[in-house]
C-alpha cells in the first residue's frame, strides 16, 4: 500500500543559479508534511541530479530553477531519467517560469511547475495526489 511508506523526494538546484530560498523552504515544507527529503545543494548538473535520484531511490525530483535556463534543464533531466530507466520518477519543480513555457514543458512529460506566490500546501497536495494514483511496486 502506497500510504504505508513515506514519499521520497529529491529537491534539486540545477545549473549555476544560487537562489536557494525557495528550494530550502519547499524542502522544509515537504519534510514537515512527512516526506523523506534529500536536498542536493547548489550548482548541480543534470547528470548529478539524475544519479542522486537513482541512488536515493526517490519517487519525485523537485527542481528549483530561477535562472531562466528551465527550457534546457527540465528536458535534459527528463531525458536522462528516461534513458536510465527511471521514468517512473515524477519530475516537477518551480521557479521563475513563464506560463507558456510551463505548458510546453508539460507536453514533454514534465509534471506541474509552480510559480512565485505558490503556497507550499499546493505543492504538497500535488505530490500526494500524484503518489496516490501511481502503482507502487
Amino acid at each position: 500500500m502506497s500510504d504505508e511508506r513515506k514519499i521520497r523526494v529529491l529537491v534539486a538546484k540545477p545549473g549555476l543559479d544560487g537562489h536557494d530560498r525557495g528550494a530550502k523552504v519547499i524542502a522544509s515544507a515537504f519534510r514537515d508534511a512527512g516526506f523523506e527529503v534529500v536536498y542536493t545543494g547548489l550548482h548541480q548538473t543534470p547528470e548529478m541530479i539524475v544519479n542522486a535520484a537513482i541512488q536515493e531511490d526517490v519517487d519525485v525530483v523537485a527542481m528549483s530553477v530561477l535562472s531562466g535556463a528551465h527550457m534546457t534543464l527540465f528536458p535534459r533531466v527528463k531525458a536522462l531519467l528516461d534513458e536510465l530507466g527511471a521514468d517512473h520518477i515524477l519530475l516537477t519543480g518551480g521557479g521563475i517560469i513563464p506560463e507558456n513555457d510551463v505548458a510546453d514543458l508539460e507536453l514533454e512529460g514534465i509534471g506541474r511547475l509552480f510559480g512565485p506566490g505558490t503556497s507550499t500546501s499546493d505543492a504538497i497536495a500535488y505530490v500526494k495526489e500524484w503518489f496516490s494514483t501511481t502503482d507502487d511496486a
Binding site: G15, L16, S67, L73
Partner: peptide
C-alpha cells in the same frame, strides 16, 4: 567564473 563556451554554461549564456 565560467566562459560562455564552457560546458557548465549551457542554456544560461546571456539569460539572466
Amino acid at each position: 567564473g565560467y566562459d560562455s563556451d564552457h560546458e557548465r554554461s549551457l542554456g544560461e549564456v546571456g539569460v539572466c
